[in-house]
Simulated assay, not measured.
Amino acid sequence: MSLLVITLAIRHDRRNMLRIQRRTLRDSTDPFSIPEPRFLELFRFSRTAVRVLLVEIEPFMDTAVRSTFIPNSSRLCVALHYYATGSFLRDVGQDFVCLISKTMVSRIVHQITEILQNHMAQRYIIFPTTLEQQNIVKQRFFTATGFPGILGAIDCTHVKIKKPPLAVEHRYINRKGYFSKNVQLVCDFDLNILACFARYGGSTHYAYI
């Protein structure tokens, strides 16, 4: 009987230790402590750029006082890592930087995406409409290439997506054999995105878009 009590006590202590480790793990994982080359590899942005972005979107992010709450810096890096690699959510959640469950990673990506779409996109993706803005873009192209009157460079790119419902999957299968959105982008000479159009599936030809 005493042996059973001791065994149960040991199991209880182990569970308590795991809870303590889980509570402290997330707070002790600081993505900004990663060396700059590795940080660029994981997130495709410099640490300075991510810090600036974090300051801008943090007012729109969730706040909490729970000890297990994932810091906003880690949340942003989880989303950026997913955008950068296109890997499955489980792979992102198991990265050594972001030890987060698949369910939580999915929630984080959804939240950050909504913030970027609703609060950031309209602020930064702006096509030049005034004569002064257009002349600046034209002059930059002309200085670099010698071509006059260019407002932007336009092209389409396939963005891979999950398999859509069977009834509409024919709209999204592209010529390379995978499902995608055919996204049209316009940028200036410095690669700043001026316009984005992501209405059509991968089966739609560039010329039609």
Rank of each mutant, 00 (worst) to 15 (best):
M1R: 06
L3M: 05
L3Y: 04
L4V: 11
L4G: 00
I6C: 06
I10F: 06
I10E: 10
R11E: 12
H12R: 15
D13T: 09
D13H: 14
R14Q: 09
R15C: 05
R15Y: 13
R15M: 06
M17I: 04
M17V: 03
M17G: 00
L18D: 05
R19A: 05
I20V: 12
R23T: 14
R26A: 08
R26G: 11
T29H: 10
P31Q: 07
P31A: 09
F32W: 04
P35W: 01
R38E: 15
F39H: 04
F39Y: 10
L40V: 09
L40C: 14
E41A: 14
L42H: 04
F45H: 13
S46F: 02
R47W: 00
T48E: 12
T48A: 14
V50I: 14
R51V: 05
L53A: 04
L53G: 01
E56L: 14
E56Y: 02
I57C: 04
I57Y: 07
I57N: 01
M61Q: 06
A64P: 03
A64D: 14
V65I: 15
R66E: 10
T68R: 09
F69V: 15
F69Y: 13
F69R: 06
I70W: 08
P71D: 11
S73F: 02
S73E: 15
S74G: 01
S74L: 15
L76R: 07
V78S: 04
A79H: 03
Y83F: 15
Y83E: 08
G86R: 07
L89S: 09
V92D: 10
Q94G: 09
D95C: 10
V97P: 02
K102I: 03
V105P: 03
S106H: 12
H110Q: 11
Q111W: 03
I112C: 06
I112A: 07
N118G: 03
H119G: 00
R123W: 03
P128N: 04
T130H: 04
L131N: 10
Q133L: 03
Q134L: 11
V137M: 07
Q139L: 10
Q139V: 00
R140L: 05
A144H: 07
T145L: 14
F147I: 08
L151K: 04
G152K: 04
D155S: 05
C156E: 06
T157W: 02
V159D: 00
K160T: 12
P164W: 05
L166Y: 13
A167D: 13
V168I: 15
E169W: 01
H170E: 12
R171G: 08
R171T: 01
I173R: 15
I173F: 12
N174W: 05
R175T: 01
G177H: 07
Y178M: 08
Y178L: 06
S180H: 06
S180A: 13
K181W: 00
N182R: 10
Q184M: 15
L185W: 01
L185V: 13
L185T: 10
V186L: 11
D188A: 01
F189Y: 14
L191S: 07
N192W: 12
I193V: 12
L194I: 02
F197P: 00
S203C: 08
T204H: 08
Y206I: 05
A207I: 09
I209E: 00
